[in-house]
Design a protein around this nucleic acid. Structure first.
Lengths: 238, 238, 238, 238
DNA sequence: AATGAATGAGGGTTCATTCAT
DNA sequence: GATGAATGAACCCTCATTCAT
């Protein structure tokens, strides 16, 4: 049915059992009371948007709270009405991007069971989402390297993908399409890492400058498929 | 002769063309005048050792210069006799570890040409070196995410491995052992990334807790070999 | 007729000449317009009750206005409908307790003129009232040490007792029961201070842990009586 | 030999067993490393002197750190070389005054055993010391009402006097000079409180304005003596 | 060379009070 | 009257770097 997917929702509706209630990207322990009025909600949103702009422009460490409030055109005090500190706005910024990052709404390989095609579509969706949020990912790396709470958050985000893909791999093994000798979880860890790492270095940092996006997708897909010994155009058995 | 290697020195003496003069891990613009007297050299070494201890204990950002001088049992002022700032000591700390990290002195798979065996040995050497310096790698990630000079340094370090491995892949392709359809440089980028990423997450961060080291080596090797379609025990001779 | 009394109302009706119009515990310049509607009165009372809870829990300085409004389950803005600031609620809190503190409603040593008995009853009544309001007295000390207006208030409260007791002493001297050599006012100052100080340290702060309340009363009474050379069971009649 | 004494050292050399090593007025847990150089010691002293001036002028709460450094003519940073915060300088200020406050070097009633005379001398010494440090005592009251650590410090300071005086009382009782019915510790608590309280209100706050100092001494002494039933001019038995 | 005190700009954070809704 | 968001002056504290001794 489904296969390796960084994000695909081929098994939509059935993964409610994965991460519990809803995999929040924000550490719960630093959440401020949410605003009550409409004006409050608007202000909060403005601050989050401003924060994203400032963070992406200057990085987390070099962003001063006043930069954010200046960008949001409000007073310092207002910031503290909605957040307790810089970490907390950053968590809110991530929260906003979360949906797009975890469920890139992949290109729906409608009507195919070809694992290779599904894999490719899934990779493409993941990489496209990564590209859209590249600046944010750089930020996440930065903050994760500084603050353990965000390190944990990054880990959880990673685990979501890893488990999802481990399932796909196990599934393919069961169907006799993938190398049965390989531990699905560890393989997923390695291959998911391969994809996210390459995404980070090429899409976020701009390493290996000018790699063609499609080549990126196809190469990663081919390596992934090869690694698991998935036949290129596997007889898409009915 | 040689093959995929993260670190091997099978091609020793031939990499002079890589990074120019001498692949130093320290950004040149950070270097202080070296000490002249012998006592000075000792002091400097003590400071570097102390810095490593402090950095590994508290992270780069939370390490204060006074923490380092206190650990080194010397005055604040003395620090500036040997280094211009925190970045510079950190560069020196990395420099000290450089030898071990770039040239893990792999076990020289003496007398074999089997690409798979060479690959495995090479991966093992890399991962062992990584494990030895895990704390430092976490630090490098942290500092690279903060300071562009170290980001560049990390990039260069990565490129060293990537090019080395790209060369091995091209070589295997020429010998008809590896999938010729794949771009060696991009594949190397992806696979080297896979290895270093998994090393980081399992060995440095302790993710996927308790993965057996040998399983790590063999899984990565198998995935790598599969990805390139290298036969497991390819009759590599001739 | 009457004697040393920290609070007794043996001389009720005659103290109109003490502090002017009405001995209010609240500095007049702090007073807000009183509420008009009935709902307003209730609100105000709720805020005062909440303030007392919060003040006693956190002390004056650490109590934030929002703590009080949160405790009173009303908005920040509403606070300012009834009070101008923190000092003013505190004054209101004291006002509420004033009756109990100034006029402990002592047990009316009915039908006796024995100065010793009256003294003891009076001390007991004072200490009992002190015990009931111990937390508030700690607060008063705190605020008095911070705000001159409350320092003045505390002084006036003290003077009330001091003058009352000075009168008793003078009376006893006139009757030949107390040491005539002593200045009644200064002696009252000293002895009233002795009582209130010991009340503060033992009942409010818990010093000299576990002093029995009755021992406290009898010791203070004995010391007071001795100090003035009042005979223990003086034939006080006539 | 000796008798009630707030400070007297009639029993000098024998009280080493009272409070242990040395009754420090400063909470140990907030002490900064002492300066090493002479310049450092001077600076520290200047800051303490400046702090005392500022504290006495503006009170603890209204004194800003910059007021102190301005008064001491040094930078903000220097302050933190010697103290961690306002509390700590205040502790240092108290420390400096400690000697004078705990051991006022009483007027040495040389060659007399008359308890009354000793008592009077002792009270005089205490009150003189109090007068000298009146402003500081107001400060101590203020800070103690705010910070539990100083509340504890005040308590300990008080206990020193209380225990000292309790001994004297017990001693007099043994010698048949004082009322044996009274618990020495509680009596000491009450009477020591009487003295310190009156000292506070008259000498520090200026209540009962213009009480003559000698009258203060003699009245307190007489009340104290009376309270314990010490004969005015007890037969100073040889 | 070594020491450790001196510097001070700069940031985060608080919270009483005001005011638009 | 009630609400709760908005304000921003004020202050504490940090710490890399310099410099007198």
């Amino acid at each position: 049915m489904n296969s390796a997917s960084h994000s695909g929702r081929g098994d939509a509706g059935r993964d409610a059992d994965w991460d519990g209630p809803a995999p929040s990207m924000a550490p719960a322990d630093l959440l401020h009371d949410p605003p009550v009025t409409q004006r409050g909600a608007r202000r909060r949103a403005e601050l989050i948007a401003a924060a994203r702009v400032v963070f992406e422009r200057s990085g987390f460490l070099d962003s001063k709270l006043t930069d954010i409030t200046r960008e949001a055109k409000c007073s310092t005090g207002s910031f503290y009405t909605y957040f307790n500190n810089k970490e907390e706005v950053f968590a809110a910024v991530l929260q906003e991007a979360q949906e797009d990052m975890l469920h890139p709404g992949m290109g729906r390989v409608a009507g195919t069971d070809d694992p290779y095609a599904v894999l490719e579509a899934s990779n493409r969706a993941y990489l496209e989402a990564y590209r859209r949020n590249a600046r944010l990912m750089v930020l996440l790396e930065q903050v994760a390297s500084i603050d353990p709470r965000f390190r944990e958050l990054r880990r959880r985000r990673g685990e979501t993908f890893i488990r999802r893909n481990a399932r796909s791999i196990a599934d393919l093994q069961k169907r006799g399409i993938a190398d049965p000798e390989i531990d699905p979880m560890l393989a997923s860890r390695a291959l998911s890492g391969m994809v996210s790492r390459l995404a980070y270095s090429t899409l976020a940092l701009g390493d290996g400058d000018g790699v063609d996006f499609d080549v990126l997708v196809s190469t990663l897909t081919r390596l992934w498929a090869n690694a698991l010994r998935i036949p290129e155009r596997a007889a898409a058995t009915t």
